[in-house]
Design a protein around this nucleic acid. Structure first.
Lengths: 195, 195
DNA sequence: CTTCATGGCATAGAAAATCTAAGTCAACAC
DNA sequence: GTGTTGACTTAGATTTTCTATGCCATGAAG
């Protein structure tokens, strides 16, 4: 038997916003802009014909409908997430595993430190290493190093890390080809190259 | 706590294909082309790194992973669908409620008859009526009539219904503006104007 | 054997959805 | 008063989804 599902991407924006009671914090979690979250939630409300949030200048409150919807949607997403991890155990890690070479790690670059402290998105687990083998073995998702060298078959972005004072620091972000375009890696790239 | 969700639209394509063991029949249900379903499922398999189907020239079989994934995903979608109906009761109808004027109804137009017998998509519930009031009152989603007249505020598409023999039959498909762009209405339009 | 029907696959491009950047507004803090 | 924060809106950029088309492999019918 078929069902009618609401727009699922919008539902994701709703769920994250409802947990945080903030489009801003939801946008951080989802690695998109607050405007995108706002639009998605608005679009969901329009398609449902139901207000899910009360908006305030500095945040959100759930309506009664939103209050009743949230746990049901969160549980369904949790079930999907768990089922997915069960079927594809390789997706179990909830963090982007980022190798950072010792040289860069010791530079205490602000964005990298922010990631380390959990203050920046995407969520990452930082590992001090420059071992490309870990990338190939699937033990890392991304490797950030100063050396521009990388073996064929991997994908590399040459970037300039802005420094608080002085010239930008050249670095290379290496990934498996399949991961190069994923949202978290792109978000990481953007974070690292941000002024 | 956040989760990592697979691409939800692809998941929808997987779930429908797995129920039907056919991209073709899933495409009918989802009102998209088989090629689109195929691409979505393939994309999901790539992002999970797991084969979900075995393909055969005349259909699909589920892999062990696909077998274990399906009930979990179906249940989650069911939960979302139920939650959505609970929060937005107006969405309860699972059928597109189509009013067909008596004149058109009596013509026994093939596409309309196909809809009536449940042989054509989108799923519709046909009601013989030409009462625009029902549309405005929300008791109908769409009204198909021969008359080109409709009140301001509604949306109308003037269409030509192909007949098996003879010239196309002019008709008007009237909807509330909010519904005019929705997938089911568009699918209905396409079905009715198909040669 | 040939022909026809069926359905999955791949591709290029069209269409739609999603997102971003930028600016506005309303509150709150100092 | 100014500055900060976060929600809202808009236009356009970007990405995703979809379509149309043709190809391929099978199975059924003649």
């Amino acid at each position: 038997m078929s069902y009618r599902l609401p727009p699922l991407n919008s539902l994701r924006a709703f769920e994250a916003s409802a947990r945080h009671l903030s489009f801003k914090r939801a946008s951080d979690e989802l690695c998109v802009t607050p405007g995108a979250v706002s639009q998605q939630v608005k679009s969901l409300e329009a398609s449902l014909g139901v207000q899910l949030f009360r908006r305030f200048p500095r945040g959100l409150l759930l309506t009664a409908e939103g209050e009743s919807y949230l746990p049901l949607i969160s549980n369904a997403f949790r079930a999907i997430s768990d089922a997915t991890e069960h079927v594809a155990p390789a997706l179990k890690g909830r963090f982007l595993r980022v190798g950072v070479s010792r040289a860069l790690s010791e530079r205490r670059h602000p964005a990298i430190e922010g990631l380390r402290r959990g203050e920046e998105r995407p969520r990452t687990k930082l590992i001090t290493t420059d071992d490309l083998g870990k990338l190939i073995d699937g033990k890392l998702d991304v490797l950030l190093r100063t050396s521009p060298q990388f073996p064929p078959g991997l994908h590399a972005d040459r970037i300039a890390l802005p420094t608080p004072s002085g010239p930008a620091l050249p670095a290379t972000l290496v990934t498996l080809p399949g991961l190069a375009g994923c949202r978290e890696v792109r978000a990481l790239l953007k974070l690292l190259t941000r002024a």
